[in-house]
Design a binder for these strands. Sequence first.
DNA 1: CTGGGGAGGGGGCCC
DNA 2: CGGGCCCCCTCCCCA
Length: 249
Amino acid sequence: MPRSFLVKKHSNSAKKPNYSELEGPAVFISPHIYHGLPLPLPEVRSPAAYSPIPVWTTSSLPLSPVSGYPSSLSDASSKDHSGSESPRSDEDERLPGKLAEAHGAEAEKFQCAVCGKAYSTYSGLLKHKQLHCDQARKNFSCKFCDKQYVSLGALKMHIRTHTLPCVCKICGKAFSRPWLLQGHIRTHTGEKPFSCPHCSRAFADRSNLRAHLQTHSDVKKYQCLSCSKTFSRMSLLHKHQESGCCAAH
DNA sequence: CTGGGGAGGGGGCCC
DNA sequence: CGGGCCCCCTCCCCA
């Protein structure tokens, strides 16, 4: 589970320095978001506007019945995005015509200028060169911490977690991204656009609704491999295991 | 102690 | 390239 957010951060966000004071102009969410405070916003998005939320019962778990929990979850996560997993190969095959002609006409082999490795096709060489690029490109370093990124965009995204350019007009709390601020503003407005289809509860955050939906399921998403007991949250499973699983001893 | 809600954070993907 | 959104996750707190 190489997700970088697992890197230990400040345990208390309130102790974080206000980077918004350090650099860059503050970014404010458009004023209409604050409209009607402290009453809930009028345009509460219907839950139907979001992806349908399945009830996970014993027989209809969307994930394979919880095996090794972290990896399986990661797999499930990546599966969600796997639809766009390999568009690159397509592009690689589509060579710029001029280049292909210029290179292909004069030689049967295409040699890497870096390591000398030869390829029969230009696309093969391009793919190979990409490896060199990936290795060499990871030099976008954060000036606030030790993290490195392969692209400037990724680095910029990360730096925002230091600069926190999105500031709440109401309480002054700063966030790295506008949608984080929007979610925060809901704590002021009371807006809860994510409704549970099985009870009357509503949530301001989709993740919290998703966690709540687990409570309606007989078989929870996270299962103890020792005693098969299931939990709605990984943290609960961790607690269970750390406290000594009933069947583990 | 356990389960659940609230709030917030990060990277990835799509447009 | 940037914004918006998605998903997953953690931490804190409370019943």
